[in-house]
Design a protein around this nucleic acid. Structure first.
Length: 920
RNA sequence: UGUCCGAUAGCUCAGUUGGUCAGAGCGCCGCUCUUACAAAGCGGAGGUCGACGGUUCGAACCCGUCUCGGACUACCA
């Protein structure tokens, strides 16, 4: 083995072999465990969020697989309608052509080509992460099988009148020229203006003042509304105003939607361009006048001066015209929420169109109940509130998109506009007994990507066919995802899962936090703070990192600032940390439901942890024999102790995995590996291994314990760090007498409880305290670790003496001692620095080693601590109501604690006194 | 607008039936190249657990109020 850990040298070969050998396919017992991957965009690349999420899922999957559970991690990718279409469109535009030039069929072909060309990238990156997905079952949302599931679902919902087509106001993206669902619209605070317009009252010289943030929509006003109780305007209700420019008469109506306090208390009503106005229009049976074209220009039936103008140019011109007409009252600055398409960034326009909708309330009801009754549990639980909030106020879901890439809506129209829904044209003709010469035209629209995503947990398993996979792995065990798609995806899977399978799609929803940068900022290309997981694995030089972060920016002017920040933070680029270190970092940071600041210090620390494990393994390999020896059971204290600690650790890791506390599992592993196995056991083992006059039996037994402990530890580490554990396991397994081809399916260590050994732990604690006492003196007196120290013991009990007798060789080695002298009670120790172990004093004679003042200071500090500890404890005991009302066990513990402190104080005082008698 | 989350060591964070719970890692300060590991070893310093009340024998933990962050959601034209 190399002297230092080199992740690049070991990782990929193991993955290739695992995949070749089909180790990720389901296998194992009756019980099953399954996770459906949140399908990444087929043409996307792996970002930190994916890497984090994949680490969590892979850890859970590998753990269950090792436990002998029949395990499936269902992989696949999403066609990601808008996102993918946009990428290909951009390519076409760059090549001087366009989607319209190509036509629908050719364009869709181009997208498939792009998918074929780039769709493998995310998969390769998943492999780099060590993700043990079952590649043989990979699916794509536009596969034939999944598409069939989509059609079936659409048809059934339509037949049950849970899908309908209707003309309503939708969120319209005038750049992408498609409808969007509410969820795809992001509203941001932006500063704008409030324009106050005068609308002349017909038949008088008076006018009403209306305030608007969108002057251009006034062309579509069909009423002015006031509050019914607003005394200022009551007399005007029922009158009409003359709408300037448009030159139409519109009524003044009363509606209690109007807030009399805001603006002038009069609201212009534009039902075709505002959601609230739309509702008011419905209530008052107002006409709906569409002002805009689909690309947000003023429409053909608008006043001639405005036709074809962009909406913002029209706005300027309308304001100018009002001013000219003397009808502009005033302009105020005003902050408002501006709705933008989440993909295009364009300001979304409420727009009247024909779209397809899912009638959602009947589906939501059972989905709410499933979470209420615990059929589905959120982890952490409080996310269920977010879920309920949305579900209780859920709106019908607009599912049609005016795109070409996606599942085409399985609806056809005849010349009369009748709608026929079915699998295909033939199916429809048959179902509706249509004559062959009736011309049918399929709906041009495709379905919202999330429609197919909603079926993911069962469509990937073969639904609507009743496949064995569906039988075995549905419902899936847990969904691992981010809070950002609870509405987009989680809720819809629950609704559709219940509707079409009669069962929940998953039993638990583990919601993880967002990966942010070291300052808590969201990672984004435009901020230039994105970290690529692959760069953390392989490392990257500064120049490449800078160029990666500054090319392809939407706002190129940000490049210099990004470059500067990057050069400052990564002066030496990013070193190679390896997948295992990255995964361990993610696991360590995976506290539930909290965003994560990704700190490079952490990954470096865990890379060092890998190195520690690596070197410990080198030691074990160098110290043991190539084949497991048939040693007697290792009944030495270190052997019994490390087995006991391992048993505790395994139990703890299991417990934490079960409750998704990967951070605590990782911590338990780290603590055991570094601070128990390496710091103590390996050092203790050297006594038996390197003794000049070795007890061969003990030596063999120690070798066996070394190999066996490391081997078991590797199995516990494997779910989080699959590569390094496999690499070492391949070498160490045979020394531990364990068979198998790969650690992947070597069983999790089960039931080590028989190794729990309280006596060994107590004895070991005595030994550790002894050694720590010496080390503390050595450390604080700045005595070189290499210098052996003489030690004198006083006040040793019979137990102490027995322990000393048994473990002297261990203590001598761990504390680097020279002589150990036991004094009788009547013998006085020489002037010394002292450590206390129960009633025993461990004295290091001063003779040239110890500085009296320093020792006095050191003891005084300890005394101080003990005194304040005693004061606190005694304070409790002096409180009658504590003694009365606290449980007896608690009181007893406090009493004992007080006694211990008193003894300690007594001894420290005596020790200090002795120092005082000395000449400094 | 409503909901939710967070505030613990210089930094990033654990602390889930309230009874050594005041912790870990990194960073920092000493001493060491001791035969697996300087990506290391050994020792050390460092916090009135955001503020104020309350419940309790006992509160980082439970309740209330407040301050400061953050997220989601709705919205006044």
């Amino acid at each position: 083995m190399d002297k230092t850990y080199q992740p690049g040298a070991i990782e990929q070969k193991h993955y290739a072999r695992w995949e070749r050998e089909g180790r990720f396919a389901p296998q194992g017992g009756e019980a099953s465990f399954s996770i459906a991957i949140p399908p990444p965009n087929v043409t996307g690349t792996l970002h930190m969020g994916h890497a984090f999420q994949d680490t969590i899922m892979d850890t859970l999957i590998r753990y269950q697989r090792q436990r002998g559970i029949n395990t499936l991690w269902q992989h696949g990718t999403d066609h990601a309608g808008i996102a993918t279409q946009m990428v290909v469109e951009r390519q076409l535009n760059a090549a001087g052509t366009s989607k319209r030039d190509l036509g629908r069929e050719k364009f869709v072909e181009r997208v498939w080509d792009w998918k074929a060309a780039s769709g493998g990238r995310i998969n390769d990156q998943l492999r780099r992460m060590g993700a043990s997905v079952d590649w043989s079952r990979e699916r794509f949302t536009m596969d034939e099988g999944l598409s069939e599931a989509v059609r079936d679902v659409f048809i059934q919902l339509y037949d049950e009148q849970l899908i309908y087509r209707g003309k309503r106001l939708v969120n319209w993206d005038p750049v992408l020229l498609t409808a969007l669902s509410d969820l795809e619209v992001l509203s941001e605070d932006e500063s704008g203006h409030l324009w106050h317009f005068r609308y002349p009252l017909e038949g008088t010289d008076e006018h009403l003042v209306v305030a608007t943030t969108r002057p251009e929509t006034m062309l579509g006003d069909t009423a002015v509304a006031v509050h019914p109780d607003d005394e200022r305007y009551q007399h005007l209700v029922g009158k009409t105003v003359r709408l300037p420019i448009a030159d139409r008469s519109i009524p003044v109506i009363a509606d209690d939607y109007v807030d009399p306090e805001f603006g002038s208390g009069c609201v212009k009503i534009t039902p075709a361009h505002d959601f609230n106005d739309y509702d008011i229009g419905k209530r008052h049976d107002l006409p709906m006048i569409n002002v805009l074209t689909d690309d947000a220009r003023i429409g053909a039936d608008m006043p001639a001066d405005y036709r074809g103008l962009d909406r913002f140019d029209a706005r300027k011109q309308i304001v100018a015209e009002f001013e000219q007409l003397g009808l502009l009252e005033k302009i105020e600055p005003h902050n408002l929420k501006v709705p933008r398409g989440d993909r295009s960034g364009a300001i979304v326009e409420p727009y009247l169109t024909d779209q397809w909708y899912v009638r959602i309330a009947p589906l939501a009801e059972p989905a709410i109940k499933a979470v209420e009754d615990g059929s589905i549990k959120f982890v952490p639980e409080n996310w269920s509130k977010t879920y309920f909030d949305w579900m209780h106020n859920i709106q019908d879901w607009c599912i049609s998109r005016q795109l070409w890439w996606g599942h085409r809506i399985p609806a056809w129209y005849d010349d009369q506009g009748n709608i026929y829904v079915g699998r295909d044209e033939a199916d429809i003709r048959e179902r509706h007994k249509l004559s062959d010469n009736l011309v049918l035209r399929q709906d041009d629209d495709v379905l919202d990507t999330w429609f197919s995503s909603a079926l993911w947990p069962f469509s990937t398993l073969g639904w609507p066919k009743k496949t064995p996979e569906l039988q075995t792995f549905y419902p899936t065990s847990v969904l691992v995802t981010g809070f950002d798609i609870i509405f987009f995806w989680v809720a819809r899977m629950i609704m559709f899962g219940l509707k079409f399978t009669g069962e929940v799609p998953f039993r638990e929803v583990y919601i993880h936090g967002l990966i942010r940068d070291q300052d808590g900022q969201k990672m984004s290309k435009s901020k230039g703070n994105v970290l690529d997981p692959i760069d953390l694995i392989d490392g990257i030089d500064l120049e490449s990192l800078v160029s990666k972060r500054t090319t392809g920016l939407m706002q190129p002017h940000l490049a210099p600032r990004i470059e500067k920040a990057t050069r400052k933070q990564f002066a030496d680029g990013i070193p190679e940390y390896g997948t295992d270190a990255l995964r361990f970092t993610f696991a360590s940071l995976a506290t539930t439901g909290r965003d994560i600041r990704f700190d490079l210090g952490r990954i470096e620390g865990y890379r060092n942890f890998c190195n520690k494990l690596w070197n410990a393994s080198r030691f074990v390999l160098a110290s043991t024999e190539e084949k497991a020896n048939s040693a007697p059971v290792d009944d030495s204290l270190p052997g019994r102790w490390i087995r006991s600690r391992l048993a505790h650790t395994v139990a703890e890791v299991e417990r934490q995995f079960e409750r998704y506390r990967l951070d605590l599992a990782a911590q338990a592993i780290y603590e055991f590996t570094w601070h128990e196995f390496c710091d103590w056991y390996l050092e203790l083992s050297k006594v038996a291994l390197f003794d000049d006059d070795p007890d061969q039996g003990a030596k063999q037994a120690t070798m066996q314990t070394l190999a066996a402990t490391l081997e078991a530890l590797l199995r516990v580490i494997h779910p989080i760090m699959p590569f390094i554990s496999e690499e070492i396991w391949q070498r160490v397994a045979v020394r531990a007498g364990v068979d198998g081809d790969s650690i992947c399916d070597t069983r999790w260590p089960v039931d080590l409880s028989k190794h729990v050994d309280a006596q060994a732990e107590a004895d070991m604690q005595w030994l550790q305290r002894f050694v720590l006492g010496i080390r503390q003196i050595r450390g604080e007196m700045d005595i070189a670790p290499g210098k052996p120290l003489p030690v004198v013991l006083q006040g040793a009990s019979a137990n102490d003496l027995t322990s000393l007798d048994t473990h002297e060789h261990l203590i001598r080695k761990m504390a680097n001692l020279d002589t150990i002298t036991v004094l009788d009670d009547d013998q006085a120790p020489p002037p010394s620095a002292t450590a206390l172990l129960g009633d025993m004093q461990i004295c290091v004679p001063m003779a040239g080693l110890i500085n009296v003042d320093k020792e006095r200071e050191r003891l005084a500090k300890q005394l101080n601590k003990s005194e304040s500890d005693l004061a606190r404890t005694q304070g409790k005991l002096d409180n009658p109501s504590f003694v009365d009302r606290a449980p007896a066990a608690v009181v007893a513990t406090e009493r004992q604690r007080a006694d211990e402190h008193r003894t300690q104080i007594e001894q420290l005082r005596a020790q200090l006194q002795k120092l005082d008698t000395m000449v400094p």
